[in-house]
Design a protein around this nucleic acid. Structure first.
Lengths: 293, 293
DNA sequence: GATGTTCTCTGACTAAAGTCAGAGAATGGA
DNA sequence: TCCATTCTCTGACTTTAGTCAGAGAACATC
């Protein structure tokens, strides 16, 4: 816990909330409560189910209903029963609602521009890059790594992505059947583990561990979503697996990787894995690594 | 108006408010309304006048009074009449209030730390620097440059700072009496102009323009507060003066500067001023510049 | 000592934001 | 067909945040 860093984060928060808070004022100047304005923003013109809205904005069902009635009375939205299930209702913007939403959008743009406008182009660029950096790193901090069963929806989805990406990146393509196995049983405790990285409620990365003989484990299925690269997710997944390995009493971890996956190799080296002679005949591997825990 | 930049600013705002907004939740978990918590934070243990509080937090006097009564009832603050003027009342934290404020402070620290904690040290440093950059540049954007009369309190204060700083930085010291003049009359429209840069309600920079013969003006008294360097204030003051000069029908601007003031020289060159032969006998000057408007 | 001003407080009021309990329609499964 | 469940809605209520008008004490000035 570095005092200076914390002090800087707090100063940042103070200044930023002050600036960004101005958005609410500008929204309120349109004479509509904030809750309604926010709702308007979330209702797309192609419609959204009321229950989805409720979950997304975390509103009480009665409260949301009343807000919708109010927007309806203003002629901004329209609600109809969903075709497939008449209990759930869908809300959509009317043309007037679309126009109103665009006005709010313009206000948001104005505020954003008001940050940039007084700066000279060089400072403007610096501000935008720094904002991008803050945004990325805050998101990175929000990533959560959890163990999941390898047959869960999230795990299966990750594996699918992993295979698709391998097929695209590895020279000659990738055929799971020809590769060394990591079956659901092999990744289910206590024979192995599967961890998933979550961001914004969806999986963005994964990794698996096969517990083997003589204290040796194997790291498999390391994958990070393209949309979430550079956030240190793979590192956290790897460390998560190492913790699991340690708990399982393993003393050595092995892994192999394809020459096309250069970021992966850099990560392994940085995390203390050393390149060793091939310890298996995996046809897609070019590099073999090992780490003593 | 760059679409991408605006988009980035908006994305930033969204992510940051989401994160920083968590502070309010953590404050609310102490079972006290936000307004009271904020107030507690502003009341120092050494006391503050109610009217100062009212101005700083921009609260209605009746509302503030009620908030104070509530904090009083909880035994967190104490109010007494000010010794010098019994109309104004001073509020101070009780020992219990101090403890409570420290709890809120700890919550703020916890939140700040929660941003940093999940990151590895390299990313942590990057986040903190990026936050510092954003904070600085947002503040820079909040700077306002306005014309003031040179005998106003703000202008006089700036000039005082300017002379003090010159005396400290210039070799042999600085004596205004020996330097070429820029009297109050010479800086008062239409004979001249004086502009002040404001930040957070206080002056942080200034500059003056003397309107001369044959369309030639002179830039004088360029100064930026040490606490506000690097925000592009001098540049904006200079441009403000140039606008005034243009409006006054001037076609050329001149200025001279001391060799110790290297940032100033860099600014003048960057803004299109060219070094020329001495056009006066200012004893403290080593460089003379001119720009055609 | 009278008079206007400053400062704080009380009373009366409002709007926004939200909570909670149930009613009633639609649906899924036994 | 019956029954439990899901989904939305209405009614009744609360807290927070704030506004406005004026009362009353203390002070400054003439």
């Amino acid at each position: 816990m570095d005092e200076h860093q914390i002090e800087q984060v707090r100063r940042f928060s103070r200044v930023v909330t002050q600036h960004v808070g101005a958005l609410e004022d500008s929204y309120l100047r349109r004479g509509r409560p904030l809750s309604q304005a926010r709702l308007l923003h979330e209702v797309g013109s192609n419609g959204i189910a009321v229950r989805t809205l409720r979950e997304r904005l975390k509103l009480d069902s009665g409260y949301l209903s009343r807000l919708l009635r109010s927007l309806e009375a203003q002629g901004l939205v329209q609600t109809d029963a969903q075709a497939s299930d008449a209990r759930v209702r869908r809300v959509a913007l009317t043309p007037k609602g679309v126009a109103e939403r665009e006005t709010y959008d313009a206000l948001s743009n104005d505020l954003a521009w008001s940050f940039l406008e007084p700066l000279d182009p060089a400072r403007r660029n610096r501000l935008v890059s720094a904002m991008a950096e803050v945004e990325r790193l805050l998101r990175a901090g929000a990533v959560e790594v959890r163990a999941e069963t390898p047959d869960s929806t999230a795990a299966q989805w990750c594996l699918e992505q992993y295979f698709t990406e391998l097929a695209a990146r590895v020279d000659m393509g990738f055929d799971p059947a020809r590769s060394n196995s990591a079956s659901i049983e092999e990744m289910t405790p206590p024979a192995g583990f599967f961890v998933v990285a979550w961001l914004d409620g969806g999986p963005v990365g994964c990794g698996a561990l096969k517990v083997g003989m003589e204290g040796v484990g194997e790291v498999k299925r390391m994958w990070t979503a393209a949309s979430a690269r550079g956030l240190g997710i793979a590192r956290r997944v790897l460390r998560g697996l190492e913790t699991k390995a340690h708990e399982a009493g393993l003393t050595r971890l092995r892994l192999e990787t394809n020459r096309a996956l250069t970021e992966a190799q850099a990560l392994y080296r940085a995390e203390g894995y050393q390149e060793v002679k091939p310890f298996n005949t995996e046809p897609y591997a070019h590099h073999w690594f090992e780490k003593r825990l």
